[in-house]
Each structure stands twice: as structure tokens, then as C-alpha cells.
């Protein structure tokens, strides 16, 4: 059969028929959706470990768990090349301004994963009168996905990354943009 393009300016009815005919072959989506699909499948995390959880983050990238299967293994040493910050470890009060600076240095669009109890709420180090840590990463920046555990297993981190990928594909941005 094939699609016949009428000469001259098409009427609305003709356009509708055209779209119907092309539907099996052409996907009409917003460019942003396509971009999000690309972004979700090639996350570049920043090489950045704070404490114990960082070891599990490294384990996730290594031989057995192989984060490369999900397209998120290109750990970048520079924040300017990264679009994902995996907050792995305890954020101390001395470190908090540094984390904030790193986050600000990352270009938009960017996402973050709070890995482990420490970055969710202060975790094991939170108690009345505690003086040394920031009680959760959300005190200083936006967090997209929380992965609980102390430390979370590599499978948990992978699940967190997959959740984030879903979220990116749907084009959703939550919370503050800071």
C-alpha cells in the first residue's frame, strides 16, 4: 500500500489518516523523552566515596556485580563530567560544604542516590547531642533515590540505580532543583 502524500496543503483529516498510517513505523515522542532514555541508560557517576559504603559501591562496579550491565559504570573523577552522585558514606560536618560544592559543580541534569543509613538520616551515628555529622544528605542537597542498608549490598545499589533509571525515563524530577 504505502503512504500517499497528497499534493498541496493537507487537510486535517488527511493529516490524521497520515499519522494513522505511519503509526506502526514512526514513534512520535518528544525529543526530551528520547534524551531521557539516553540519559537513563548511560549514567556517569562521580568517583566519590565517603566511608564504608564506598567500598560496596566499588564492589558494585567490579567483577562479580558488574555495574556495566546497566550502563552506569563510567565513574568520572571530575564532577564536571558526571551526572550522578552516589553519596556513599557518612557526610561529616567538615565534609558537608565540600559535598555541596561538588554537587553544585555537576552540570544539570543531574541525579543523586543516597546510599546507606548515614546519608539517609545520619544512620548509626545519629544520637541526641551528636556533633560530627550531617544527619542525612537531604540537609544539604536534593536526593532522588534512597538505598537503605549499612552498607547496602551491591544488589541493593543496583536496584537503586534501576529505580533511578525508571524515574529518569519518566522524566520526573522531584524536590528542590538545588
Amino acid at each position: 500500500m504505502g503512504v500517499v502524500v497528497p499534493a498541496g496543503r493537507p487537510t486535517d483529516a488527511e493529516l490524521a489518516r497520515l499519522a494513522e498510517d505511519a503509526a506502526p513505523f514512526v514513534r512520535l515522542a518528544m525529543v526530551e523523552d528520547v534524551l531521557n532514555l539516553c540519559r537513563a541508560n548511560s549514567l556517569w557517576p562521580i568517583t566519590f566515596g565517603l566511608a564504608c559504603c564506598a567500598i560496596e559501591m566499588m564492589a558494585t562496579g567490579m567483577a562479580k556485580y558488574d555495574l556495566a550491565r546497566f550502563g552506569a559504570e563510567v565513574f568520572r573523577p571530575s564532577p564536571r563530567q558526571a551526572d550522578l552522585m552516589i553519596l556513599a558514606g557518612t557526610i561529616s560536618r567538615k565534609m558537608a560544604p565540600v559535598v555541596q560544592t561538588l554537587w553544585d559543580q555537576m552540570p544539570e541534569p543531574k541525579w543523586s542516590i543516597a546510599m546507606g543509613g548515614c546519608t539517609i538520616s545520619g544512620g548509626p551515628f545519629k544520637y541526641p547531642g551528636e556533633y560530627a555529622i550531617a544527619e542525612g544528605a537531604e540537609k544539604i542537597m536534593r536526593v532522588d533515590v534512597h538505598v537503605p542498608g549499612c552498607p547496602p549490598r551491591p544488589e541493593a545499589l543496583i536496584a537503586g540505580i534501576l529505580t533511578l533509571e525508571e524515574k529518569i525515563k519518566q522524566g520526573r524530577r522531584f524536590g528542590r532543583t538545588r
Binding site: 566511608a51 561529616s92 560536618r93 567538615k94 565534609m95 547531642g129 551528636e130 560530627a132
Partner: peptide, 14 residues
């Protein structure tokens, strides 16, 4: 140093 200070020693007293 001190960017990873978590206050273990104070915690021990608590």
C-alpha cells in the same frame, strides 16, 4: 584530616 570525623569516641561514652 577530619573529613570523615564521626565522633566514635563520644559515642562510646553514650
Amino acid at each position: 584530616i577530619g573529613y570523615g570525623h564521626r565522633g566514635h569516641e563520644k559515642m562510646a561514652e553514650n
